[in-house]
Write a protein that binds this DNA or RNA. Structure first.
Lengths: 152, 152
DNA sequence: AGGTATTCAGACTTATTTATCTGAAATATA
DNA sequence: TATATTTCAGATAAATAAGTCTGAATACCT
């Protein structure tokens, strides 16, 4: 296998985006998120707990409880979510795992990879959840069955 | 965690590069590769077997046996190795795991990611092992303790 | 032929990630 | 207060990736 982000991280991003599509202050249950996004219920619970502990979400127990964004959606970037779940090792490590590889002692693809990695970093840091939510509401961005008609 | 290629794949790339630094036709044992590149012996054995089955390497048993490149180093690209070990799913899948995401039904970062992914693809396909070996022999590219004085 | 060095093959173990289960704590509502 | 609904916490299980072990097969060398 070879992918950029862990499955947990994918689930986290999808969930935060889903919450951003809700009206401000509205609480959403794990059950709803798990059903609409097709994510295992209890696994998602754990992930949302992590995000809550890091302040990205806030939670409320009891009937009518659930989760909501913990900060203004403009302030939540993809990078925040990735950082919270997967960490930021990918911004430092050599693509091919050469432990000695660094700027002064580069592997053969170090420079090329640095450029690409910077591109990924910029993508993560420049995309905030508010902008993504706005995109997602456009007809051209009707991704993810669970997303298509959230609070519209 | 979040990384691009599996550890197997990293080991494979390091090994093929090591072999490319040897004189043409010279056989290298698993033992030597494992020691110099700091890779678990038996695990590396499996990986080299895979590469051999795919034709990227050739092997020879018995004393003075070992592994060598199975094709001219100019013809072996990083993409070949990644393809052989990790597969090529990363060229197709959505970064954030949206199953419905594609060109006509894009997620919010689909276009940006496509550009970055294409960059990765180009890097993999344009870098052949001969060129990397040449780089690695330059003083500016003295990476990987095991690589530094291979057949020089 | 016999001894030795190597890859090959398959079973096995360990570590990590993903997923599930159970019950406790909190809270809204009747 | 009782009940229902939710998150929270920790243990457990299943799946996958990484790593290990043993012995057979092959080939070189004396």
């Amino acid at each position: 296998m070879s992918l950029i982000f862990s499955r947990q991280c994918e689930y986290a991003i999808q969930s935060v985006l889903y919450l951003a599509l809700k009206h401000h202050g509205e609480m959403t249950s794990i059950r709803e998120l798990a059903q609409r996004l097709d994510i295992p219920y209890h696994f998602l619970g754990k992930i949302l707990q992590s995000l809550t502990r890091k302040g990205l979400l806030l939670s409320h127990k009891g009937p009518a409880g659930g989760f909501a964004l913990g900060m203004p959606p403009q302030d939540i970037t993809l990078f925040h979510i990735v950082e919270a779940i997967d960490g930021t090792d990918f911004t430092r490590m050599c693509v091919f795992g050469f432990s000695e590889c660094n700027d002064t002692n580069p592997c053969s693809v170090h420079e090329q990879w640095s450029v690409l990695r910077e591109g990924v970093y910029q993508m993560l840091i420049s995309k905030n959840i508010a902008a993504m939510a706005k995109d997602t509401k456009q007809p051209a961005f009707r991704i993810a069955s669970g997303m298509s008609n959230v609070s519209l």
